[in-house]
Amino acid sequence: MSSEVFLRVDRLKKEFSLKVAWLEAIFKGKKRIVKAVDDVSFYIKKGETLGIVGESGSGKTTLGRTVIRLVEPTSGKIIMDGMELTQLKGETLRRERRNFSIIFQDPMASLNPYMRVGKIVSHPLEIHNIGTKQERKEKILWLFEKFNLTPADEFYNRFPKHLSGGQRQRVVIARALITNPKFIVADEPTAMLDVSVRSQILKLMIEIKYEFKLTYLFITHDLASAKYICDRIGVMYLGKIVEIANKEDIFKEPLHPYTKILMSSIPIPDPNIKREKLIPKGEIPSATNIPTGCRFHTRCPFAKSICREKEPELKDVGGRLVACHIV
């Protein structure tokens, strides 16, 4: 891993305006705004994997999509490999897409049911005019072999519905990898898979990361999977990063109360261990109605009066960043 920064995200915001019934629009007189990503900054070094961990509703999925411009950011800058991605438009952006890709959570839904697997994987190459027909096919068959989708030429002609969940996700990864991108966003790539398949996919992703010199943004709700693949981890809550640090620091000593809660909610398959659990009050509030002050204070077991009034900034605590008044 070099110390060169590959991706820098600076004050990124993404707001959605919700459709409001016309009666409400007249009486309340304003649109309802969802702040899915609310002023998020981070960097990823070349060859590094940054994990973004949070509950559903934390905005982590929107963040992943916004970083590669599948969703238009409301404001902020994204600089990837020295190029300002937020400046690109139309055709230039479309051509640039060969350099970064995304792996979605649901492998079945991300494959066109009317396309054969071979065509699905070769399509990115066709779109970007890479290689001849023969070269494309050879590369795909080679990748299928490598991904254990064998016999490869048989898989090449199958439809997605004839594949198992794990095989489908390997096809999705193959498609994401086929143009030799430098950066991949993985949005909960293992969440819908069986336990035993989960580890296979994680292992595959780690292997190709080194072989193809990839940089990952790994989005998950599962800290346990994040441990295996991430170098650093950012914890997201209601559109904001509340803590970001090296994996070791997060696992050894989580600082933010929310990180602590996430850590203690992971079920440990060891009946010999009895842990004191840290359980928050209630559930994640709606992003249309973000609490004032620290957005976590409504659920925080340690909240004080300052937490209700003032929003904490990310501050440096021994080389890591935490946004909490108590730390």
């Binding site: 035993s196 398949v197 580890s199 292992k203 994996k247 696992f251 440990i268 398959p269």
Partner: peptide, 14 residues
């Protein structure tokens, strides 16, 4: 094959 949160066990078994 269950992922754990021990930092000294990084092997992914399946």
């Amino acid at each position: 094959s269950i992922p754990n949160i021990k930092l000294d066990d990084m092997e992914l078994k399946y």
